[in-house]
């Protein structure tokens, strides 16, 4: 299975990677090889195999609804490149957010 340059450009956009024209050429080749390797799996007949939701044969792992200590704000922010002591600071974003 060969990937097109457009496929790779789209994947790059979704991953927020700025890919140059040279990058695109190189990665189109490399990614095609990887996908080709994996696509060998398509030769196996899986029509009688149920989709696997999880590799572990374990179910129903829960915790009780009991509060546990949180980090302090200072601890939470310490790895952030920019913060104002209470919030993380990021370049201005506009438009919609939240769970969709």
């Amino acid at each position: 299975m060969a990937l097109s340059r457009q496929d790779v450009a789209k994947v790059g956009l979704l991953a927020r990677l700025a890919l140059s024209s040279d990058d695109l050429d190189r990665m189109t080749g490399e990614l095609s090889k990887i996908v080709g390797l994996v696509s060998q799996l398509e030769e196996i007949d899986t029509s009688a195999v149920a989709p696997l939701a999880h590799p572990l044969d374990t179910q129903n792992v829960f915790r009780d609804d009991v509060p546990a200590p949180s980090l302090t704000t200072a601890e939470a922010l310490q790895s952030s490149p920019r913060h104002d002591g209470s919030c993380f600071l990021v370049p201005a974003v506009l438009g919609d957010s939240g769970a969709a």
Binding site: P67, T73, S86
Partner: peptide, 23 residues
Amino acid sequence: TKTKLFCGCSTTFGAAPNTQVCP
């Protein structure tokens, strides 16, 4: 609920920013 879906942080509304967070 008292706590979040996947961790024990409180869900109480109106707390100071980033005081109910964990790894």
